[in-house]
C-alpha cells in the first residue's frame, strides 16, 4: 500500500466482494438447485436456499443416471473422464520428457527436422483439423494404406514374410482413440525443453566424469530436478483432459465410453420437454468437483503450471 486511504480500502473490499458474488453466483444456483425435487424448479422464481432432495438426486445420478436419455450412471462416466484425464496427463508428460531430453542433450543428424516437426503442432489445436483426424481414428493405418495406394498397392492387407497383417484398426469407442490425438501436442515438450536449457552444464559434466551414461543421468539427475515442473504440468494437463468436449463427442458413439463433461449435454438437449434441472445440476456439480478441487487444493502448483505453459 502506497498511502493510507481507509475509504479506498473499504471500496476495494466492496468491489472484490461484489465481483466474487458475480463469479460464485452460478455455483450457488447450481448447488442449491441440485438439492431440490424436480417440481420445485418448474415455477419461477426458483428457490435460492437448499431443499431436502440432495441425497436422492445425487444417488440417482451416480447409480442409474437419467432414465430417458440412455440412462448411463454417472459413476461410469466419471471413471471414463478420470481414465482420459490421467492418460492424457501421464502420457503427455512421459513422451515429452524423453523427447525434450533427446533434443537438448544429443547431437544427431536431423535433429532440427525433428524439432520443427514436433513444434509445428504447437499451432494446430484439434478443433481446426477434426475431420481428417477423425478419419485416422476410424482407421489408424489410413496414412499407411494411402501411401501404399500411391505406390500402387491396393487393399488393406499386407503380407510380410508369409504373415498377413490387417491394416484396418479402428480406435473409435476406445480409450486410445479418446486420448492419443490429444497427447500429440508440443506444449509439454516445449516446457521441458525450456527447463532443461536452464539446468547447469556442470551437472552433466560431473555426471560424465563419474562415468554415468545418458539414461543414468536422465533418471538420477534430470528427473529429480524436474519434479516441481512435472507436478505443475500434471495439474494443468489433468484439467485439460477432464474438460475435453469436442473429441469425446466425435469418437464415442457407445454410451459406455461417454465422459461426464460431454454426457451432460445429452441431458440438457432433450426434445420437447423441459430438462430435469435438479438432476442436470447434480450432474454438473459432480463434473466440476474433481478439477475444481485440484485447482483449490494445489493452488501453488496450478498457478506455476499456468504461467509456465503460456511462456
Amino acid at each position: 500500500m502506497v498511502e493510507n486511504r481507509p475509504w479506498l480500502t473499504v471500496f476495494s473490499h466492496l468491489v472484490l466482494i461484489l465481483g466474487i458474488g458475480v463469479v460464485v453466483l452460478p455455483l450457488w444456483v447450481t448447488l442449491v438447485s441440485s438439492t431440490h425435487a424436480g417440481e420445485d424448479l418448474l415455477r419461477s422464481p426458483i428457490p435460492m436456499w437448499f431443499g431436502n432432495q440432495m441425497f436422492e438426486n445425487y444417488s440417482q445420478m451416480l447409480s442409474s443416471g437419467m432414465k430417458h436419455v440412455s440412462g448411463q450412471p454417472l459413476t461410469g462416466m466419471m471413471l471414463n473422464s478420470l481414465i482420459m484425464a490421467l492418460s492424457i496427463a501421464i502420457g503427455k508428460i512421459a513422451i515429452s520428457l524423453i523427447a525434450a531430453f533427446a533434443i537438448c542433450y544429443f547431437r544427431f543428424p536431423f535433429r532440427m527436422t525433428c524439432f520443427w516437426l514436433i513444434f509445428i503442432t504447437l499451432m494446430l489445436p484439434v478443433e481446426v483439423r477434426i475431420l481428417p483426424t477423425y478419419e485416422v481414428i476410424a482407421n489408424v493405418f489410413t496414412p499407411l494404406t494411402k501411401l501404399l495406394a500411391l505406390l500402387g498397392y491396393e487393399g488393406t492387407d499386407v503380407v510380410i514374410a508369409g504373415f498377413s497383417i490387417d491394416l484396418d484398426v479402428s480406435m473409435l469407442d476406445s480409450y486410445a482413440g479418446l486420448t492419443l490425438p490429444l497427447i500429440a501436442s508440443a506444449t509439454a515438450t516445449f516446457l521441458f525443453r525450456q527447463f532443461f536449457l536452464t539446468v547447469p552444464d556442470e551437472l552433466t559434466e560431473a555426471a560424465r566424469i563419474d562415468g554415468a551414461g545418458p539414461m543414468k543421468f536422465f533418471r538420477d539427475i534430470l528427473l529429480p530436478l524436474s519434479r516441481t515442473n512435472i507436478a505443475a504440468l500434471f495439474v494443468i494437463l489433468f484439467i485439460f483432459g477432464w474438460n475435453q468436449y469436442l473429441w469425446p463427442l466425435l469418437v464415442t458413439t457407445d454410451p459406455s465410453y461417454a465422459t461426464v463433461v460431454m454426457g451432460i449435454q445429452r441431458m440438457v438437449n432433450v426434445a420437447d420437454i423441459e430438462p430435469q434441472w435438479n438432476l442436470v445440476m447434480a450432474a454438473s456439480m459432480l463434473a466440476m468437483l474433481p478439477p475444481v478441487a485440484i485447482v483449490i487444493g494445489m493452488q501453488r502448483l496450478f498457478v506455476k503450471g499456468l504461467v509456465e505453459t503460456e511462456k
Binding site: N243, V261, V292
Partner: peptide, 15 residues
C-alpha cells in the same frame, strides 16, 4: 476467484 478456470467450457455454458 480462480476456481472457474477448472470448469469445463461446456459446463459453464450449461450453468
Amino acid at each position: 476467484l480462480i476456481w472457474p478456470y477448472a470448469v469445463a467450457p461446456a459446463i459453464a455454458g450449461v450453468l
